[in-house]
Design a protein around this nucleic acid. Structure first.
Lengths: 183, 183
DNA sequence: CTATACATGTAACTAGTTACATGATTTA
DNA sequence: TAAATCATGTAACTAGTTACATGTATAG
């Protein structure tokens, strides 16, 4: 389960509470592994049981006590073990593809509209990624170490959006053309 | 939930039993929406309760009776309704990306090896897709109707694999280079 | 005075995966 | 005689989503 390991990575970069982790996830990991605060709290609990993280209760005034988590030696070993085992491939399930497959039984214009919406949201996301690239990775592709790793992840995101945009364009053109032919 | 709707599409193309559907899924839908026979039987049961499909029990000799499912008018309406509503975007969760993100805490060579494995499996899949394209869609991109829709779905698969291959190549090169620099 | 940040949780639900069960027929 | 095909299912589990709950402090 990659969520546990994504948390281990995040906690190795900086120890912190579930709340802090959820914030950090929202800002970085969520682009490729989203997780709600519930999921993070629950998973941290399980990880503490397994001994992958240690918990320190920090009493606070005026607000609930906070639990700070840090990666243990066992957690570090587990992260290393996991990262060496074969990474399974998962089929990304996309409703829009199913709709295209069944377009004969649907309102084609409604599907075209969804493709346009998708295209726009991908273009927006791509622009956000490109801005992050400019701001945080000006040295790319000549980076090293952690910065390189982060940039490579960003590259995956950029590629995904670029691909999405191109496919949407193909889709819109082809469905439009076919509609035109029919009339 | 797209599984229900993928089943409606498949059953509109041809009515059949859960078993038959599971076979057909394995041969086509599974490329973009995999489902086990359990999932299909369970979902068909739910769909029958909702009145989206009708069930006819066909007694057989020598083997268990078979239940043939067909899409009802309500099912056709539901398919049309669903295909018009906005398609949600889901983040494809990929373990390999998480591993790259945390490469600093891992054995980099092991991650490179996984990227190579991934690259090969994507190249294989791409070759299979290209063969289907040659065999079943020689008229592309000038197709119309259902053949066009099926080809557009295939295009999504082809694009996905091409993109995967390119990203893996970037990844392998960059991590290798960085390893070289370090030494 | 309203919204946001801080901080953690319980509970119920949905979707998908994996293992196990049954049993005849046909093909290698 | 072993394996694959036909045919349907129960049960348990894992991962992720959504709704609800609590309560202070601070910023606009």
């Amino acid at each position: 389960m990659a969520l546990e390991h994504a948390i281990l990575i995040s906690l190795r970069e900086r120890a912190g509470s579930g709340y802090e982790l959820a914030q950090r996830f929202g800002r970085s990991m969520a682009y490729f592994w989203p997780a709600t605060h519930q999921q993070i709290y629950r998973t941290l609990g399980r990880m503490a049981e397994q001994g992958w993280v240690s918990v320190t209760e920090v009493p606070q005034e005026g607000r609930p006590d906070k639990k700070t988590y840090a990666v243990t030696a066992a957690g570090r070993a587990e992260l290393r073990r996991w990262s060496g085992e074969p990474a399974p491939r998962v089929t990304p399930r996309d409703d829009l593809i199913v709709k295209v497959r069944g377009a004969a039984y649907a309102d084609i214009e409604a599907i075209v509209a969804q493709a346009q919406e998708r295209r726009e949201s991908s273009a927006d996301q791509l622009e956000r990624y490109r801005e992050i690239e400019r701001r945080d990775f000006p040295g790319a592709p000549g980076l090293t170490g952690q910065a390189l790793h982060q940039w490579l992840v960003l590259r995956a995101g950029i590629r995904l959006e670029e691909n999405e945009i191109e496919w949407c364009d193909e889709l819109i053109d082809a469905l439009r053309r076919d509609q035109g032919v029919k009339e």
